[in-house]
């Protein structure tokens, strides 16, 4: 058995199995995130939420999925067919392949690559293409406006996200995600880098086009933004992609700032619980933050959004980066590069 896994065919099969082992729970997570969102919003707004399909409405995501599959896929006349259908697939695929490098426990990643952070950053910066292509290929003004907004927004917030990641990286001395988590054994980075943690969380909201930065789909102004023309499965793919992205961003926050799979402070009773459970728990806490924000804050105006990104986050993150680098250098805490 072991020998078989060393052959090329064995490697391929093993990789596929690993991918399935990751993607199936992930997709279940996505499905139940939509359910959780409705339940949490309902609870915050003192409603009941979905409670008809199955016990506590637990089968609601499946009912929705079946409905989506059964509907007719409508392609508007004048739309660029190929690109129109490619955009949702791209969004969904990008949200999936990013997971290849996420470690859920020590060494538990499909690909433990040296430049994991850059890979994540690269994939998340590609997300904008799904949106732009969808907006353009729909041949509709609302979709196009939504796409323009979204592209500008995502590009703007990536800049400060990049700086925040660099701040973490200079504390670690490695671009490997596993190393980043292991560097947090003494203290999670959300403590010394607290302002960056907050900024990172807000930037992930903007990066995933979530409320209060959901202007690309602002229904009161541009109907539903870039996916106004989509229906049935193509719409479902966007939907799934968006929620998978939320989980991805939460996982990123967890790895960069909340110590990944590490138990808090390495204390005795906590360490009995296995790493993946901690990882999932932390991701869920961050996801709850996403939903909580959505229930609490009104939507930003577009100029305020841009102001926040360029005039507040960019200088702050740059300044904090310089500060952290200076402190590390002066105190001699710079991690030794192997």
């Amino acid at each position: 058995m072991h020998a078989f896994l060393q052959t090329p065919l064995g490697v391929v099969i093993l990789t596929l199995a690993e991918a399935l082992a990751l993607l199936v729970p992930l997709l279940m997570g996505v499905a139940y995130l939509t359910y959780a969102e409705r339940k949490v919003l309902a609870a915050i707004q003192m409603r009941r939420g979905p409670n008809v399909v199955g016990p506590f409405g637990l089968f609601q995501p499946f009912a929705d999925a079946i409905k989506m599959v059964m509907k007719e896929t409508i392609i508007p006349t004048g739309a660029n067919r190929l690109l129109f259908l490619m955009a949702p697939m791209l969004t969904f695929a990008l949200a999936m392949i990013a997971w290849a490098v996420i470690p859920v426990n020590d060494g538990w990643a499909i690909a433990n690559i040296n430049v994991g952070v850059l890979y994540l950053f690269a994939i998340s910066s590609l997300g904008v293409y799904g949106v732009i292509i969808a907006g353009w290929a729909s041949n509709s003004k609302y979709a196009f406006l939504g796409a323009l907004r979204s592209a500008a927004q995502m590009v703007s917030y990536e800049v400060s996200m990049g700086f925040i990641m660099v701040t973490v990286l200079i504390c670690v001395g490695s671009l490997n995600l596993n190393d980043i988590v292991m560097a947090q054994r003494t203290v999670w980075f959300c403590v010394p880098l607290f302002p960056m943690f907050i900024m990172f969380f807000i930037s992930t909201l903007a990066e995933t086009n979530r409320s209060p930065f959901d202007l690309p789909e602002g229904e009161s102004e541009i109907v539903a933004g870039f996916f106004v023309e989509y229906s049935a499965m193509s719409f479902a793919l966007f939907f799934l992609g968006e929620y998978a992205n939320m989980i991805l961003m939460s996982a990123m926050t967890t790895i960069l700032f909340l110590g990944g799979w590490l138990a808090p402070f390495g204390l005795e009773p906590f360490t009995w619980i296995p790493g993946p459970i901690w990882f999932i728990a932390k991701v869920m806490v961050v996801l709850f933050g996403f939903l909580w924000v959505r229930a609490t804050f009104p939507r930003y105006r577009y100029d305020q959004l841009m102001r926040l990104g360029w005039k507040v986050f960019l200088p702050l993150s740059l300044g904090y980066l310089v500060l952290v680098a200076g402190v590390l250098l002066v105190m001699g805490w710079l991690p030794h590069v192997a």
Partner: peptide, 15 residues
């Protein structure tokens, strides 16, 4: 050159 590869994607494709 994995670093260059990622930077190429981030800078050229992403921005």
């Amino acid at each position: 050159a994995e670093f260059l590869a990622m930077i190429l994607v981030i800078v050229y494709v992403g921005a």
